[in-house]
Simulated assay, not measured.
Amino acid sequence: MDELALIDTLKLIFNVSKLYPDLAVTFSPSIPHILKIISRMEIPAKPLDGLISYLINSLSVLDLEGKKEKHFESNTLFPKFNQNCNVDKLINILDQAVSLYRPEELEEKAVPLLHSLIVVHEVAPEGPRKYMQWLLLPEDSDRSLPIGRSDTLASKLLQLSTTPYPNLKTGISELMFVLSGKDAENLTRRIGYGFAAGFLASRGMEIPQTASEAFATSDANGLDSGVNPITGQRWAAEPKDTGPPMTEEEKEREAERLFVLFERAKANGLITMENPVAQAVREGRFEELPDDADSD
């Protein structure tokens, strides 16, 4: 009976705050209690169902940033005894959720949690902020495979960001963007050009004209030119091609395919640079060889 009463109260908080945002500040005193309940709860078998889902939904619509009025202590989200305890619990819930639910379920269930993590990172002091980045962004150890192929939480989130579910895609992409300091080049360095390009284009943000621009210099995390800028995998870890060399016909077909893909990306606004093949033709650096020409 107590749990049912709590669920009804949380529903009230969520609905009033969602429909009447100006009244959300009325419920700010409940934030410490919601966080305490979440931190002390065992994560259920279905981590985004039942009571915990109502707690997270309510948290997602409340004024965690304290923009309007300070109804709670500034260290509520990051208590002195353990600044990372609330962050750690929320990320653990997310980790279990992405391993259990199908993408179509996460489209509805995971968005409030993603939104809460974005807001928490925005107001976090340096320690919890670095901790969140360490847990949610690809690490150097992930780069033995193309980014998004390992079994880490960061890779699972990036895989989900390519699914055809707009709310889920947007929530994950926004989280990665915020974790990367809202910087296009840093985002590209962290998650690879392939994952970053579509998100940046959808926001109307300038994309590095070439993937290598984002990797031109190493950053504080040591991500440098030793990394494939498209896949995010270390060059040294990429598989070696042990098959026979391509024939001239195969080379021509591959060149044509890449030319078409480049033109499509340019037409869709994903890149702005000139097609290198067209540039070579214009500058007179393109030579068509006869069919019987030696491959050397």
Rank of each mutant, 00 (worst) to 15 (best):
D2Y: 00
L4K: 07
A5W: 05
L6Y: 02
I13C: 06
F14H: 12
K18Q: 14
P21Q: 07
P21T: 04
V25W: 01
S30L: 15
L48Y: 12
D49S: 10
G50E: 11
D63S: 04
K68G: 05
S74H: 04
L77C: 05
P79F: 08
Q83W: 03
I91N: 13
Y101W: 07
P103K: 08
E104G: 02
E105Q: 12
E107W: 03
L117D: 10
H121F: 04
P125K: 10
E126V: 07
L137D: 03
E139K: 03
G148W: 00
G148H: 01
G148I: 13
G148T: 14
S155D: 15
K156D: 15
L158G: 00
Y165Q: 02
L168G: 07
M176W: 00
F177Y: 11
A184S: 13
A184V: 05
L187S: 05
L187K: 02
G192D: 05
E206L: 12
A211K: 00
E213R: 05
F215H: 01
T217D: 11
I230N: 09
T231D: 08
P239E: 14
K240D: 15
E256K: 08
E263M: 09
A265E: 14
I271E: 13
T272I: 04
M273T: 05
P276Y: 07
G284E: 14
E288R: 14
L289N: 06
D291V: 02
